[in-house]
Design a protein around this nucleic acid. Structure first.
Length: 151
DNA sequence: GCCAACGTTGGC
DNA sequence: GCCAACGTTGGC
């Protein structure tokens, strides 16, 4: 079992949307590093759902991987916001996974809290200038954040 | 809305 | 292969 953090702008897609939908396909990732992490994901791996560019920035809940990486067809659709004109139709360069809702935290574990928790200081997403939308987290980091959400 | 930090692109 | 220019991300 592995653990990841996935960022989403709640104006675009929030933990409440995931709760309502039950599962969603994580399409639109156009960054090679983030894609590679998705390709490492296995069914059942757990993810921290992070709200970026939000009124309340931080981790809003938990999901898990319900379907492993498969081609992101939105890259081939000229009408899609994440259309990639540089690849051929059918090119499986960009991939997505399906994420299932697990729980919404009773309160957001804010970025401020994350920064002020010494055992989380190595989290990739907290490093200066990091913009990766998908990053691995350790089991310990995952469990620490779950505990913070219960406080 | 600003801007620092980063990834990508393309000319050479 | 270098690197300047550009576009994007995301916190503030």
């Amino acid at each position: 079992m592995k653990y990841y953090l996935m960022k989403s702008e709640p104006d675009c897609y929030s933990i409440d949307d995931l709760k309502k939908d039950k599962t969603t396909s994580w399409s639109g990732v156009r960054n090679y590093q983030a894609r590679n992490f998705m390709m490492d994901m296995r069914k059942g791996d757990e993810i921290l759902f992070y709200h970026s560019n939000a009124k309340e920035i931080g981790i809003a809940g938990i999901g898990n991987i319900s379907k492993e990486a498969y081609p992101d067809h939105t890259a081939w659709n000229p009408k899609d916001e994440h259309y990639d004109a540089k690849i051929a139709h059918g090119d499986p360069r960009w991939q997505m996974v399906d994420v299932r809702f697990v729980k919404k935290f009773p309160h957001v574990v804010t970025l401020d809290t994350l920064k002020n928790t010494p055992s989380l200081k190595n989290m990739i997403t907290l490093r200066k200038g990091n913009r990766l939308s998908i990053t691995p987290v350790t089991k310990k980091e995952f469990e620490t954040i779950v505990k913070l959400s219960e406080k």
